[in-house]
């Protein structure tokens, strides 16, 4: 089992996405919002990589840049063998069906003037040579898959609840048999009692269709449930990337540690006895990130070097990558204690 390491479906290397800032009457280019500033990771086929971090840290930008909804500033992205960022327009169009996105706000991402069947069927018109009859059959099949009653095919988005609208968004994303789906906060706008319905659906679909997910969320409990590995972002960079159980048991990066300690748990006894790391101050602006480590202005364990040198994301334990000067910078050989099970994530960068 352990040796059968699946190949990465998605490879991201040193991805950068800078948004230019223009100021003054002449709209001169005076700086950049470094929304994503050198991010690298792999996602194995069939895996769910969780991407967590606080608002504005660059999660959505990573997701969009990855499938080229943005034109990234620099970096490489390989999805199912193709170098996404260098594809010519026609090749990119042909590639689109393989990589899809599910958005946070189902309301805003669905055209209010289209019926459910039109919304789900739209990608089929654009990308498949199916006849109208075949298309309708596929639309019904998709509705079945996501648990939408076929009778609703001719209704409009506003007639549905938030959870149902999210099902419509998922059905649409599935229409062209994608391999990879970026789920950008797919449950953030939903009520607690509806979130589990949608997450279970995403998990079922993954099992049945062999999907690979990038699951973006700020809900750390939900990410623990759904993800195999988790990347923690801070100010455009990855602070830590670890297998889920290892991360939640013992986060290594001081930011990951503070973030997890801040999540309240629905248990009065545990809450009463918990030691919480309260971070001082706010996140710096991505237009003007601190020199050195992005977290150095708030880190409880900050050292001199952190204010001058940017730590690289390095493997500090088998399968665990951390960008922090507290950890030795050279990739240590696999320690005997926690070997094997993290083989999956070992790769040459």
């Amino acid at each position: 089992m352990l040796d059968a390491s699946p190949a990465p479906l998605v490879k991201v290397r040193d991805l950068k996405m800078y948004f230019p800032i223009h100021t003054g009457v002449l709209r001169r280019h005076t700086g950049d919002v470094k929304a994503v500033d050198g991010v690298s990771f792999d996602i194995m086929a069939g895996e769910t990589l969780g991407l967590v971090g606080e608002s504005g840290c660059g999660k959505s930008t990573v997701g969009r840049a990855l499938i080229r909804l943005y034109e990234p500033t620099a970096g490489e992205v390989e999805i199912a063998g193709d170098n996404i960022l260098t594809l010519a327009p026609e090749a990119l169009r042909k590639k689109r069906p393989q990589m899809q996105m599910v958005f946070q706000d189902p309301q805003a991402s669905l055209n209010p003037r289209m019926t459910l069947a039109q919304i789900i069927g739209e990608p089929l018109i654009e990308h498949s040579g199916k006849t109208a009859t075949d298309r309708l059959a596929r639309i019904y099949e998709l509705m079945d898959q996501v648990g939408l009653n076929r009778r609703f095919a001719n209704r409009y988005p506003h007639e549905f609840s938030g959870g149902q609208r999210q099902r419509i968004g998922i059905a649409r994303a599935l229409a062209l048999n994608p391999k990879f789906i970026v789920c950008d906060e797919p449950i953030a706008a939903l009520d607690v009692s509806i979130q589990a319905q949608v997450v279970n659906l995403l998990e079922d679909l993954q099992d049945r269709l062999g999907l690979t997910y990038l699951f973006i969320s700020h809900d750390l409990s939900m990410v623990r449930h759904i993800a195999d590995r988790v990347a923690v972002m801070y100010l455009g960079r990855i602070a830590e990337l670890s297998p889920r159980d290892a991360l939640y048991a013992k986060p290594l990066h001081p930011y990951a540690e503070a973030l997890l300690s801040a999540v309240p748990e629905p248990d009065p006894d545990r809450e009463g006895s918990r030691q919480r790391i309260i971070l001082k101050g706010d996140v710096p602006s991505p237009a003007n990130p601190p020199k050195g480590c992005a977290f150095c202005t708030r880190c409880p364990k900050v050292m001199d070097i952190c204010r001058t040198d940017r730590p690289a994301l390095t493997e500090v334990e088998p399968g665990r990558q951390v960008a922090c000067h507290l950890f030795p910078t050279t990739s240590a050989p696999a320690k005997s204690t926690s070997g094997g099970q993290y083989q999956l994530q070992q790769h040459g960068v």
Partner: peptide, 25 residues
Amino acid sequence: RALLKTVPSLTGAREARLQVIEGQP
């Protein structure tokens, strides 16, 4: 009871599947 069970836990045993509250408010 259902609400307390439907939220995934941050610590302790990880649930294989989330408990669902069917239907709508």
